[in-house]
Every structure is written in C-alpha cells, then in structure tokens.
Amino acid sequence: MLDVTDLVTAYGKIEALKGVSLQVEGGKITCLLGPNGAGKTTLMMTIAGVLQPRRGSIRLKGAELAGLSPARIVSQGVALVPENRLVFPHMSVYENLLAGAYQRHDKAGVNADIERMYARFPQLHERSEQMAGTLSGGEQQMLAVARALMSQPRLLLMDEPSLGLAPLIVAEIFNIIAELNRDGTTIFLVEQNAHMALQVAHQFFLMEQGRITFKGTPGQLAEDEVIQRAYLGTRRAAG
C-alpha cells in the first residue's frame, strides 16, 4: 500500500534519513522500532508532508506523495497521529474532531463520524465541550487518534502513541490499534515499547541512525535482541 524508496530527509546539512526504503502492506499493522534519534519521527513527518524529502519517493498505491502539501496528502487518505499528540489545547474536544475533518465537505457524514468517535471513545463524549488542553494524557491520545480518524484515512500513521502513558492506558491504546486494524484500517506504527508493538504487529522494521537495519516478522528475531537494538542501537549494544 505504501512504498517508501531511498528516502533522504535533512535538517540543514544533517541527514536524519539516509536512504530509507520500506513497505507497508494494506490491511496490516506494520511497526517501526528504533532508538531515540534514529529518525522515526522525521520519517513520519516526511510521509505526512510536513517535512520535504531531499530525495526518494513515497508512493501510496502507486501515486507519488513526495512533494505534495500536507493538506493534499490528508485528502489522499493518509493521516498522522503525531508524537506528543499535539491536540489543539484551547479548542474543545468537539472542535478538535471537527478540525480533523477539515478536508471533508460532507457535513452529515462528518456529524455521523463524530458520533461514531463518541461511541468508540466514551471519555471523549463525556468531555466533548471541555478544552482539549485540560484532558489527561491518555484522553489526549484518544483524541489525537479520533481526530486523525475523522479524515477517513486509508493509512493511519502513529508516532509513539504510548509515550508517557501509564501501563493500563498503554494496553488500552494497543487494544484500539488492533481494533482499528480489524475494521480495515492499515496502520504504520512507530514505537519505543517493543514488547507491546511486537504483540500487535504483523511485520516490523528496525531503524538505526537514519537507516533501516532489519525487516521481518515478530517471530523472526528474539524479542530481547529486538528490544536491545530498539532501545540502544546495534553499535553501542555491540560495544
């Protein structure tokens, strides 16, 4: 479904992605693991169009996304749940969901989808008029997911949705991920929590220092090796 080929993204002179190639299969959960600073967020932001790549291509079912504006990429059916959630803090939960549907013009459909989000995330329903900035971390994460879903994405990108959340909430988030996937959404997930990620993923990639260093299925590599490389990176782990 998503084909990333030889992608290079740089901040000034420093290349954070040094030729990344990977594939996300339709209908599956694909996971990207890697230590801090590996370039995972940079990759997500580049796919979403917030960062422009130097080189390489990003194809969604064959159609090129690289070079499109973030708005065009959203309308192509790709939505990102960003690292640190980035809800609109001074807007209500309801308005956050409305903003998530910014590219849509079917008012009735949008309202129906907001009701669906309320049904799936009852905490959001209870707090629909509350400012998003006053929600707990877990609730903000639910809101960030629901906001992304409001654009009716074919491909949902998620950047460390478990970051900074209590274990019980993390489990709930992963339940939601599995559930969304069962309902037909393709998911590309960045995680630090390798243990949880390997439980839901169909396929995973390891990224270290701007490069993909492993591709496989969860059974293929011993979990402790994955964890070691995901947290520490090969080079330091070997030394």
Binding site: G49, A71, P82, F88, L98, A99, G100, Y102
Partner: peptide, 19 residues
C-alpha cells in the same frame, strides 16, 4: 476554526489538512 487550530498548534494544523 482553521485560524484557531493554527494558533493552537501549527504542525497539527498542517496534519489535519489546513493550508
């Protein structure tokens, strides 16, 4: 709504498809 989203978080405003 778009302007308030940009005020709240410009990166997230991009991500929901606001120009």
């Amino acid at each position: 709504l778009a302007l308030r989203a940009i005020i709240g978080n410009p990166v997230a405003a991009h991500l929901v498809g606001i120009n």
